[in-house]
Design a protein around this nucleic acid. Structure first.
Lengths: 208, 208
DNA sequence: AAATTATCCGAACGATCGTTCGTTAATTTA
DNA sequence: TAAATTAACGAACGATCGTTCGGATAATTT
């Protein structure tokens, strides 16, 4: 077996653990979920878990790192395509909302905020978040400039971006697939509300 | 000392405990905060805390109940005044944002979502949340109707309201008094973004 | 077939958890 | 002032916590 295959095998086992752990931790919280709970839900023994990570804190770090990395990779691809600012913002929102709804548990953990962690690890996560935030602010800023020909100060753009991410990150507080439509429908709603206000979409339909 | 004074004294002691406990729990999480931590931060002994509540879960309940009740009382007063739908929405947002920023720790706990709790207690909290949500949806729905003369279905209004509360409830993820202005400035930004889109406020300034 | 490595486990460690108990100081009431 | 109630405490309980250790089994390589 090649080195890569060994790594894949290993990551496959780890990925399963990260998924199921995130699901339980999203419900009970990090401190509220014991290693024995995680052993049971992953179908392994308590001590067997420590083959995949050295302690509980590292497990939390791995869930966060995996999530932010893949979210960042997806969004970075938006910059490669030659899109108009409006389309780019629309795709950024679709990406985030779709990923969010497909990975509700992990996103719940990733957005649960300050957690005491190893200095080096928290810095790695901080940089990932920072990079993602900067990317989003650039796209929002370019959109606003394209709409108004105004050069907004950074703090205005920054705050607007936080409002946008508030709409998206609050999804875990209410979203249910059966009641609130597909991820794309939610993303469209957020895009229209953010760009034109809460009555925009309906006005458009009405004027057709 | 009168009965009321006794009750005040008692509530004063409890209120102090709820405040300091919320502050610590907002940082470390419910399960991450031990009763010994709470005893230290409130300047009391471990066993002395149990004079004010019967167990840790009840402490969490009391923090939530106190917060939602006072938030609901504030917002209910909006319905008494004779306001236009636009003003009423604006005041709802100001109320929520101001309360949120003045009580960041408690709001962090109140918005941290599903927590395993006594059936009766969780039902009391659920009803408070439900009442507050219904009040907000009514105000948002009336505003949208006043702007467009369209009768929106309930699920549309419901989703728009969730987006609005997403912008507001995400505040704890980024807000700092020194960097992001007063609560009123944030509230105005959210009101303009929600009603007219992200470029509304600046367009208005530009057109003066 | 032997050697090596990757997985996995039962049992136990010290530490910390939420809670209870009996008792004492402080304050209010009668 | 005496009685009654409120407020607070130290010490200890059993339970559960994260983690470790030595050894077993399974998988892969030599």
């Amino acid at each position: 077996m090649s080195d890569q295959a060994v790594i894949n095998k290993r990551l496959s086992g780890l990925d399963e653990i990260l998924d199921k752990s995130a699901q339980l931790m999203a419900h009970l919280g990090y401190h509220g979920t014991s290693m024995r709970d995680l052993a049971q839900v992953t179908g392994r023994s308590l001590s067997g878990l420590y083959h995949y990570f050295s302690n509980k804190e590292e497990l939390l770090f791995l869930i966060n790192q995996r999530g932010f990395t893949s979210l960042l990779d997806m969004s970075n691809r938006l910059l490669i395509d030659d899109l108009r600012p409006e389309q780019r913002l629309s795709k950024l929102i679709s990406n985030h909302v779709t990923y969010f709804i497909d990975h509700l548990s992990e996103m719940r953990i990733m957005t649960s905020g300050t957690m005491e962690m190893n200095e080096q690890r928290s810095q790695i996560l901080w940089k990932l978040k920072q990079e993602y935030t900067q990317l989003a602010q650039n796209i929002v800023g370019e959109y606003m400039r394209s709409q108004t020909d105004v050069d907004y100060p950074d703090d205005v753009i920054s705050r607007k971006t936080y409002l946008l991410y508030g709409m998206m990150n609050w999804i875990f507080g209410w979203y249910s697939a059966t009641d609130h439509g597909t991820a794309q429908e939610v993303a469209d709603d957020i895009f229209h509300t953010f760009t034109k206000g809460c009555c925009a979409e309906e006005n458009r339909k009405k004027s057709l």
